[in-house]
């Protein structure tokens, strides 16, 4: 029993602190310390959640946001890793792309949102484009650095057995860069979600970000909070899934497994 507690200490502590926050939130409102108008309350959110679920509003918003998320991230995965591989072969391409990577990390991308509206109109294409730009940077950068930092000793050993360029890429650089690529994917997931919600806040017809903005305008705190909580839940689930994938692909370096 004590063993079980030790093994799950992190998870358990996290759950407890979360439960305490929910409880304090509820009590603050129930005891009249803060008006529900400002912070709603867990029980109000639960009721409103049920209402939105029954009316179909919730599933529509979730479906729209997730499909935009999937499109943006999918596109970023293809383009980011593709360009990363190409840039690892061509120094020229790497130098050409470098300033955009600086921008991708340093520039608040959301500031060019109006331009995207001008080009792509208000709605899904613009939101997908924003999510794409948010997500593509770490995917490109991690693919490139993963391949470029292939172990020089391994490459020399492979060359001593007559490895060709293709062998070096397929048998050393690519498998060796999988862990850092998955780490990039984990960053990209969080950034793509940010891109979708931010995009929807400014202009959309449906989606979780749209719902937050819509009810926010109407000062309906509780209804707004349902979507906020959902965004949080998706963020946590997705990054946790990626952490599992990361651990699985990195097991040859850290894990005890012997598959």
């Amino acid at each position: 029993m004590t063993r079980w507690f030790e093994n799950h200490q992190a998870l358990l502590s996290g759950c407890i602190s979360f439960a305490v926050i929910v409880l304090v939130w509820q009590l603050t409102v129930d005891l009249g310390l803060v008006k529900a108008f400002f912070i709603s309350s867990p029980s109000l959110v639960a009721v409103e959640f049920w209402r939105q679920l029954m009316s179909g509003e919730l599933s529509t918003n979730v479906a729209v946001s997730l499909s935009e998320f999937a499109c943006g991230l999918g596109l970023a995965l293809v383009v980011g890793t593709g360009l990363g591989v190409l840039a690892s072969w061509s120094r020229t391409l790497e130098y050409i792309l470098e300033p955009f990577i600086w921008l991708g990390y340093a520039f608040p991308i959301i500031a060019i949102y109006p331009l995207f509206i001008a080009w792509l109109g208000l709605g899904e294409p613009t939101i997908i484009a924003i999510a794409f730009i948010f997500a593509v940077t770490p995917l490109y950068a991690n693919t490139l650095s993963g391949i470029k930092n292939a172990d020089a000793d391994l490459i020399r050993a492979a060359r001593s057995f007559g490895a060709r360029r293709r062998d070096l890429f397929l048998k050393i650089a690519l498998p060796g860069s999988v862990p850092i690529l998955v780490a990039g994917l984990r960053l990209a997931v969080g950034r793509a979600l940010t891109g979708v919600v931010a995009g929807e806040l400014f202009g959309a017809a449906a989606g979780l970000g749209y719902s937050i903005a819509y009810y926010g305008d109407k000062l309906k705190t509780t209804a707004m909070m349902v979507s906020m909580v959902l965004v949080m839940i998706f963020g946590v689930i997705l990054t946790q899934l990626l952490s599992l994938l990361e651990a699985a692909t990195d097991s040859w370096r850290t894990g005890p497994g012997r598959s």
Partner: peptide, 10 residues
């Protein structure tokens, strides 16, 4: 080689 130079994922 001096360093075993083994593929860690194999």
């Amino acid at each position: 080689f001096q360093e075993a130079s083994l593929l860690p994922w194999r």
